[in-house]
Amino acid sequence: MRPGALDRDQRRFSLDQLLQHGLNAIILGGTYALLGIGLTLIFGIMKVVNFTHGEVYAFGAYVMFALVMPLGVNFFVALVLAMALGILLGAAIELLLLSRLRDADIDTTMLVMIGAWIAMQNTEQLAWTGVAHSIKNPFPPEPLVWGALSVSWNRLFVFAVASLLIAGTYYLVNWTKFGKALRATFQDRDTAALMGVRIDRVNTATFALGSGLAAAAGALLGPVFVVVPTMGDLAASKAFAIVILGGLGSVVGATVGGFILAFAEELGSGYISSGYRDAMGFVLIILILLVRPTGLFALKERIS
């Protein structure tokens, strides 16, 4: 065999590998973006650092588990229900906790949210024990193969639903009257109130929407990985990283940030060390923030 042929095969092999990593990253990025968009909307509108975000994500996964496994509810029906319950849970957190803290300082609000986070996580442990559960999915077990690339049907489904939800959120924020009220409140709360926007309702709706997206991400990824009570912690820290990376309050930033994080993790674990998979994204974020401390898509404003 000539040495050149081997070279070509090796190159071929590494190109395939790169493409496979890229494909995995795109698929993972969709759910990261979902998580990030939910969190950035809540921070942007309400200026609340939402420590319950990861728990709402875990809640979505547990609802999926409880409905599909013991109760035998149809997978797709369960997914819709998990999202709907996530929205309700978000509305409940806002109405029961945050709406009473409107005039409280940021430390108080943060402490309350940290308390809620701990309480929710322990409730999950109490209800479902600390043992990891897996959720059966209805997709064919053999992956979809295209040339040297392969992707599981379940992950493809996750990506499709995440994309739909992201598109739906963009539509809602940019093209509906509710979206206009949302953006106006984000940009100038008092003036939005002067236009007739009910700020309280915008707050509740935003928190419910953001939580719904987090629950959807959990319900989508639950069947891909396993469900454990601490699953929300890593999801929350990743969501925070995505939001900081993209620029606080920027929906576009959170979307792009989600994909950047996924690429960093996927390529970092593939080419550097898979043991540091979860650290890769954070390292990249530190590097990016050194160059752009306000995040990639921080809003420009005229100060005068």
Binding site: K177, K180, A181, R183, A184, Q187, D188, D190, T191, A192, L194, M195, G196, V197, L299, E301, R302
Partner: peptide
Amino acid sequence: AHCPEGRRVFPQMSVEENLEMGSFL
């Protein structure tokens, strides 16, 4: 209607969207 101090237009919304906010109700 209250036209606030410092104009307080919604900076990242278009001119048209600002007008539409005026007719929000």
